[in-house]
Each structure stands twice: as C-alpha cells, then as structure tokens.
Amino acid sequence: MKTYWAKPDEIEQKWFVVDAENKILGRLATEVATILMGKHKPTYTPSIDTGDFIVIVNAEKFAVTGSKMTDKIYYRHSGYLGGIKDRTLKEQLEKKPEEVIRMAVRRMLPKTKMGRAMIKKLKIYTGGAHPHAAQNPETLEI
C-alpha cells in the first residue's frame, strides 16, 4: 500500500463561517488554524496547502478567561532605539478588534511561505455581515 500524497490540482477547498460571539479566543484560534492548515482532512499533506477558507464574523465579541483583558500585552517595535510600543488586550480591541484574532491564528501557523499563504485564506469581520455569500459558506460550530 502506498502513502497518499495530495497534488495541488486535486485539492478541494471549502468555505466556512464561524461566529466568534462568546467563544474563548485561544480555543477559537486553534480550531481555525487547524482548518486553515487542512489537518482536519484525510488528504492532509504537509508540503501542500490543503486547508479551507474561513470567514469569522462578530470578531469583537469573543471571550477571554481570567484577567487577560488588562494583563495580556501586545508589543510592536518601530525599529528605532526606544521604539517599543505596547497595548493591552482591551486597548487593542478598541482600536482593531479583528487583529487580535488574526494574530492569535497567525502565530499558530507555520512560519514559512506556506504559512503566509494560509493566513490569506482567513477573512475576519466585525459585526454579523460578510461579503462572501457568493461562495456559499457552510456554518461551522466551534
């Protein structure tokens, strides 16, 4: 018996919609990262992007446990001396709520060319509406 190895033209990619309302951030991110990589499929191949597209709605309504709203800090650096800046999770939610989920998922993906291609299949929207109705996305319960 030979091992199955997926070819790029054999891959069938689906679209899924996930409602992030009242979902724990980390648990949501791990499920989404698994689907973006394609590990939920029996045709998973490590060197081929076999994952599906994910649309996340209500991105600002996720939940976190404990005191992460004030204790979790997001850092960024300008590249200049003393150029480190930080924001708490609460401040980040006020400025860019969709970036919180995007960064949580991105850090769970491979740090390669393929990982950068996978994160492009993630579409995140605040509110309940999204412009991807033409793709007939299935509702995914996490």
Rank of each mutant, 00 (worst) to 15 (best):
E31Q: 14
T126N: 06
A134L: 07
E12G: 11
G79W: 08
K68V: 05
L93C: 15
V32H: 04
R87M: 10
G26C: 09
H77Y: 02
M69P: 00
K7N: 09
T126E: 08
R116A: 05
I84T: 15
T65V: 10
H130L: 05
L93Y: 02
I35W: 05
S78L: 06
G83F: 00
K96I: 02
L36F: 04
T112C: 07
S78T: 15
D9F: 09
A6E: 15
I35M: 12
L36S: 14
K120D: 11
K7A: 06
W15Y: 06
T65L: 10
F62N: 02
A59C: 13
D9G: 00
R106I: 00
Y44W: 02
G79V: 03
L122A: 09
E10M: 14
V17K: 05
K113Y: 09
K14M: 11
K120I: 03
E12A: 10
H132W: 02
K61H: 14
I119G: 11
A133K: 12
F62Q: 03
D86G: 07
M1H: 14
K2H: 13
V18C: 06
G38R: 01
H130K: 02
D86N: 12
N58C: 11
V18I: 13
D86Y: 03
Q92K: 14
P46D: 10
K68R: 12
G82N: 03
A129R: 03
Y125K: 02
R27K: 07
L109T: 14
L81Q: 12
K14N: 14
T126Q: 10
E138G: 01
N58Q: 15
A133E: 14
K113I: 04
M1S: 15
S47M: 13
E91L: 03
I24K: 07
T65R: 13
M114D: 10
E12V: 15
P97A: 02
I124L: 06
K96M: 10
G83N: 07
L109N: 12
S78A: 09
V105K: 04
P97N: 00
K121N: 15
I11P: 10
S67W: 01
Y75V: 08
E98H: 03
E12M: 08
M103N: 10
K61T: 08
T139I: 12
G82E: 04
K2S: 15
E99N: 11
V100I: 15
R107W: 08
Q92H: 11
E12F: 02
L36A: 12
G127D: 08
D9A: 04
F16L: 09
D86V: 12
E31R: 11
G127P: 05
R87C: 05
G66Y: 04
E138C: 01
K14C: 11
I35C: 00
E141C: 00
K39F: 03
R107A: 13
A129I: 03
